[in-house]
Amino acid sequence: QKTCLICGDEASGCHYGALTCGSCKVFFKRAAEGKQKYLCASRNDCTIDKFRRKNCPSCRLRKCYEAGMTLGARKL
């Protein structure tokens, strides 16, 4: 079983350049394409896991970029 690099849930494949679950794939697409700016209410070090991935979109998006996700990457 492969694990999502963002939240640790079961990965569905390589999306936008990183091994992710469906939830993180859709989140990244919407967040990266959108005009909304996300700000962390804490210290930009929130725990992003399967159960808390929706708590801080700022840290989740940062983790996506750190994992190498880009909109230009093709699905592998």
Rank of each mutant, 00 (worst) to 15 (best):
L19T: 12
V26K: 15
C56K: 01
V26E: 14
D9N: 13
I48D: 04
K50H: 09
S58W: 03
N55L: 12
K29C: 03
F27I: 02
T3S: 11
L39D: 10
S58Y: 06
T3Y: 13
T20F: 15
H15Q: 06
G8N: 04
C4D: 03
I6D: 02
G8F: 03
C21L: 00
G72W: 10
G8S: 07
F27N: 01
E33R: 11
C14N: 04
C21P: 00
D49I: 04
E33I: 14
Q1F: 15
K35Q: 13
K63T: 12
C64V: 01
G13K: 05
Y38R: 05
F27M: 00
D9H: 15
P57M: 09
K37M: 08
R52I: 11
K29E: 15
N44T: 07
E33P: 08
C7Y: 02
S23T: 05
P57S: 11
P57W: 13
S23Q: 09
A32E: 14
N44H: 05
A41H: 04
C24P: 01
V26Q: 13
S23M: 07
S58N: 06
G22I: 05
R74A: 08
L5T: 13
K25M: 13
H15I: 10
Y16S: 03
K35G: 12
T47M: 09
K63E: 13
K63G: 03
A31S: 12
K29L: 04
R74G: 14
T47N: 10
L71C: 11
F27P: 02
A31D: 03
Q36T: 06
A41S: 11
K25C: 13
Y38W: 05
G22T: 10
C4V: 02
G17T: 03
L39C: 10
Y38E: 10
I48C: 02
R52A: 07
H15A: 07
K63P: 00
Y16E: 04
Q1R: 05
G72R: 13
C24Q: 00
S58H: 08
K37H: 15
L71T: 15
R52T: 15
L19R: 13
Q36K: 13
S23Y: 08
F27A: 02
I6R: 03
D49R: 04
E33F: 04
C64I: 02
L5K: 11
A41Q: 09
K37C: 06
L71V: 09
C14V: 05
N55T: 13
P57H: 14
Q1M: 13
C4R: 08
T47L: 11
A32K: 06
G72I: 15
T3V: 05
Y65F: 11
G13R: 06
A41T: 11
Q36V: 15
K25G: 13
E33N: 10
C4H: 01
R52Q: 10
H15G: 07
G8M: 05
N44Y: 04
H15R: 05
C56G: 00
A41V: 13
Y65Q: 12
K35I: 09
C46K: 02
C21G: 00
P57F: 12
H15W: 15
T3A: 09
I6S: 02
Y38S: 08
A31G: 09
K29I: 04
H15S: 05
R74S: 12
R52Y: 09
G13Q: 05
C24S: 00
Y16H: 04
T20E: 01
G22R: 07
Q1N: 11
G22D: 12
A18G: 04
C14G: 08
I48K: 04
C64K: 01
Y38Q: 10
Y65R: 08
C56S: 01
C4A: 01
L71Y: 11
S23D: 10
K63V: 07
L39G: 13
H15K: 08
G72K: 08
G22A: 12
C21S: 00
A73T: 06
S58K: 08
N55W: 03
Q1C: 12
N44G: 14
K29W: 14
K35T: 14
C40N: 01
N44V: 04
Y65D: 06
S12W: 06
R74P: 15
P57K: 11
A41C: 06
Y65I: 09
C40G: 01
C24G: 00
C46F: 00
Q36E: 14
D9Y: 02
Q1W: 12
S58G: 15
E33H: 07
C40R: 01
Q36G: 13
T20K: 01
F27V: 01
S12Y: 12
C56M: 02
E33W: 05
Y38I: 15
C21E: 02
K50V: 10
K35C: 13
Q1K: 15
L39H: 12
K35E: 15
C40D: 00
G8R: 03
L39A: 11
I6T: 05
G17R: 04
S58M: 14
G22Y: 06
Q1G: 14
N55F: 08
G13S: 12
G72T: 11
Y65T: 04
Q36L: 10
S58L: 05
S23G: 11
N44C: 03
D49E: 10
C14T: 15
C40T: 02
Y38D: 11
L5Q: 08
K63F: 04
P57N: 10
C56D: 02
A73W: 06
K37V: 11
K25E: 14
S23K: 07
Q36P: 13
G72L: 10
T20M: 00
D9F: 02
I48P: 05
C4L: 01
C64G: 02
A41P: 08
Q1V: 15
T3W: 08
L39S: 08
K25A: 14
K37D: 13
D45C: 04
D45R: 13
D49Y: 02
D9Q: 10
S12Q: 14
C7K: 00
A32S: 11
L39K: 15
L19M: 12
G13E: 04
Y16F: 15
C59Y: 02
